[in-house]
Design a protein around this nucleic acid. Structure first.
Lengths: 239, 239
DNA sequence: CCCGCTTCTGAACGCGCGTTTAAGATACTG
DNA sequence: CAGTATCTTAAACGCGCGTTCAGAAGCGGG
């Protein structure tokens, strides 16, 4: 169970109600929302929030802790599917977790420790999933699996975040519609990119490897297996 | 020539100095910076700013217009190189344009019309560049070239933006260091992704095409990937 | 000289913010 | 019942914000 809740006795009533209202309000209107608005949503006074959480930063920290824990709990249920695309396919399936995801997205936009923890967590998951895919032969190996997992995570969330900023929904609370529109816009190109890439040959990759001092044919320490000979135009090797 | 400058007579002195200071200040500290701070940087009073620009929003609009025009002027010089990776390689080369790019990134983070114009412009460029690559046979064709160009643009800038949010630099004005760090973190995985993709076969793509009601051609899935030969056909399955 | 004009400024206004304070409810305790 | 600790609130404080306002400083023309 949620090992993250503060679990004080009073947490079951007023304090939790304030926290939930704050998460919802932060997710819907961003962290710039005023304490008085949160208080109104929670049906209490602004002073009571400060009394319970010390300050607005304290409230924010409590929300961070709660959301991170809740997301971790949720994610263990969905632990298997975690590639960047199937991940979003999972996301559209859930409705109740919308406030959590909205809060996380706001957090990603604002930066801070929760954002870092959040992508660290997802990047680690992506890494194990990529490793499984590579082992199963369904996924192309990388010279730096950790960097790739992190790049895919940052790329996926960054694209979602920017798309959301550029196409702001009428109702920010309806995350399901938001994600649906995003998938409609980017589903095909992303899947295409993931299966076929962009380039038809290795010239760009070889040039980059040469540039960073890791020549492609030499098979230096970076390559788990020789990735691709520079002479052969198209990639074909598969063990 | 820059058709965007307001080109009033007084624009050569005080008004331009305020505008430049505002662009610099917005780029370095975000749009939340106060008018008094901008006024201090410009060596004037806060009241003079609103006298010249009407309000803070007016100043923001003038900065948007100026930056968009300047970026367009700059981009015509660099018009050729525009793939998502070589684009960033271009970016690290320029120092003077750092305030422009910083302002644009802040704008992308905040949303608004300039952000939309900005990515529209880059997406259009990416589209013509992709078309050239496909025609030359160096780039894999897509079922929806426009959507792919936009996805690549949003993805590239989104990843940069999120990476920047997660790894905030000590000196936000040193954009060269910022971009250098970003390329160091994401250069290899992105180039790998662009040349090899992620998946070894077409099962995921076929599943997606089936899901959206655009069934793939028979036999396009199966064995080791056969990356859409540019000579045989531009598309494997025409809808 | 005074006039009208633009440029520019310091002081102040009104607002909303996070926070503090003093006091009122409420409930548990001896 | 009185005592007391906790929960809760209305009112006010101080701050910074964008903005307004009256007026000073420079300036070309009757």
């Amino acid at each position: 169970m949620s090992s993250t809740t503060v679990a004080s006795a009073a947490d079951l009533s007023t304090r939790a109600r304030i926290r939930d209202a704050a998460v919802l309000s932060f997710a819907g209107h961003g962290f710039g929302v005023g304490l008085r608005a949160i208080a109104r949503d929670a049906g209490v006074s602004a002073a009571l929030i400060v009394h319970h959480f010390g300050s607005k930063d304290g409230l924010r920290a409590a929300c961070d802790e709660y959301v991170l824990g809740a997301i971790r709990d949720v994610k263990t249920d969905v632990v298997t599917g975690a590639t960047v695309s199937s991940l979003f396919a999972q996301l559209v399936a859930m409705d109740d977790y919308a406030p959590l995801l909205g809060y996380a997205l706001r957090s990603l936009q604002a930066g801070g420790d929760l954002a870092r923890d959040f992508v660290d967590h997802f990047a680690a998951d992506a890494e194990v999933y990529c490793a499984a895919g590579v082992a199963a032969g369904t996924m192309v190996p990388s010279r730096d699996e950790k960097a790739r997992a992190r790049y895919l995570t940052v790329m996926g969330f960054g694209a979602l975040l920017l798309d959301l900023t550029l196409n702001p929904p009428q109702d920010p609370t309806d995350l399901k519609a938001v994600l649906h529109g995003y998938l409609e816009r980017t589903g095909l190109p992303s899947v295409e990119l993931f299966t076929h890439g962009l380039m038809t040959d290795n010239t760009m990759l070889d040039a980059y490897l040469l540039y960073i001092g890791d020549p492609p044919a030499a098979g230096s320490s970076g390559g788990p297996r020789e990735p691709s000979p520079p002479t052969s135009a198209t990639r074909e090797s598969q063990p």
